[in-house]
């Protein structure tokens, strides 16, 4: 016969801890199991939110997530240096995105230059290695390239606009398990 849940809970949550407002949080190095619970829980939560958003808003889901990403990008990039040269701007971007979305420049083997000027726009292919969005999609079984990926597109475009002052667009060329190919176009 197991004890009643209420009794067990009341015993478990009894504590003599002295709680001062200025002492919080009690520890600065949470164990990996706890971090993982929070991380995976967040990924799942995000995933279900996006699934439901897609069901209700349809194509509008992409617009919502893009806008969210763009706001984030503008906010984060506000304190970084302003650069007008594309390569310098990419370096600033790599500082901003580092750890969450690491990327590297890429070019097809038959071209000489990474940065291409065409019809007044500048474009460069970027290969994204680490990506929080890809990890979230894979955690909940969503296909890559959906609304969640638009948050990254918005994030990069917003950050690049703050740094260079130029309007931009990030197109998804191919999504993969280990890297995704995107094309950054600056007007």
């Amino acid at each position: 016969m197991s004890e009643s849940f209420i009794n067990e809970a009341k015993q478990k949550f009894t504590t003599d801890l002295v709680f001062r407002a200025e002492d919080v949080p009690m520890r600065c190095d949470p164990p990996a199991e706890e971090l993982e619970q929070t991380l995976h829980g967040l990924m799942q939560l995000n995933g279900y939110i996006i699934k439901s958003l897609e069901e209700i808003a349809g194509r509008g889901a992409n617009a919502v997530t893009y806008r969210a990403g763009k706001k984030f990008g503008h906010e984060v990039a506000k304190y970084f240096e302003k650069k007008s040269d594309v390569e310098d701007a990419l370096r600033e971007l790599s500082y901003i995105l580092h750890g969450q979305y690491t990327f590297e420049p890429w070019k097809p083997s038959d071209r000489d230059e990474y940065i291409v000027e065409e019809n007044g726009s500048t474009f460069i292919y970027l290969v994204f290695h680490d990506c929080i969005v890809r990890q979230s999609c894979r955690r909940i079984g969503q296909e890559q390239g959906g609304p969640l990926c638009q948050t990254l597109c918005g994030y990069v475009v917003g950050a690049v606009e703050e740094i260079t002052g130029r309007r931009g667009k990030l197109e998804i060329i191919h999504t993969g398990p280990n890297a995704c190919l995107k094309k950054l176009i600056l007007k």
Partner: peptide, 9 residues
Amino acid sequence: REPCRDIFN
């Protein structure tokens, strides 16, 4: 390994 893969899908 992959949470997005299982035998059926």
